[in-house]
Write a protein that binds this DNA or RNA. Sequence first.
DNA 1: TCGATTTGACCAAA
DNA 2: TTTGGTCAAATCGA
Length: 254
Amino acid sequence: MEGTTATLASELDGLLAMARELEARVDGDQGAPGAARELCAELAASVDRAVRLAGSGGNAGGRACVNGRLRSGRNAAAVRAQVRVASMHDLGPLDDGLSWRKYGQKDILGATYPRAYFRCTHRHSQGCQATKQVQRAHADPLLFDVVYHGAHTCAQAAAALAGPEHQPPAAFGLEQQQQSSPPAAPQGIQWPAEPMTPPSFPSSPAGCYTPASSWCQLTGGYGYAAGGGLGADMEFDELFWNTPGFFEPEVQNL
DNA sequence: TCGATTTGACCAAA
DNA sequence: TTTGGTCAAATCGA
């Protein structure tokens, strides 16, 4: 039974990926009629629900897991999140209450867009080892793969997580995030419409927030999404849905 | 002036 | 040798 469910979920994952890609393409096509866009959005939402239902067998209310373990020996465990913005206009600074400092950017083999590397601003002052990698998905410019490594141990993270709007996962400094109306961010990063420019992602979400047209998903698994990093398209195929508070600190078995 | 970003170089793992 | 991750100098903006 479990195998059937897993297969179903896997199939739905594929459908979901296609639905999202279609939605993204229609979104990007100014000539597309509104009805088509609406239909795409409904399609994606419907598949979303189906996936949740399929996965609810093992996880009531949604599939969630974080035991992310990366293939590469350099990175043992990580939390993977996919962040989607509603439109290019939403590519504003994504502030999760934490301070991230970009320290590098790299073109990844097989990926359309470069990967950006961030670490906690308080790395040196407080020894906070949290880092994250952000990469725009190949098939969907509005979708970003965010992989978190290490735990936030800085005072700012503790304060942020203590706030009412911020539920766990403390270990990774993941919080809920409102994509559509980003609050003032420490660093004002503008998200260019030009896809080749990598995302400066000062702070990004992972605790999934799901406004009407924005979503993100957490995926525990093989973080290296060679070939563009569209999570739903990846071999491990394991999508983990938003379950605020689900994260467990011990996930960080690096 | 200080802090953040950019970007080429360097290093380690596969 | 290739590739991913990080470092650090140069640059930019508040």
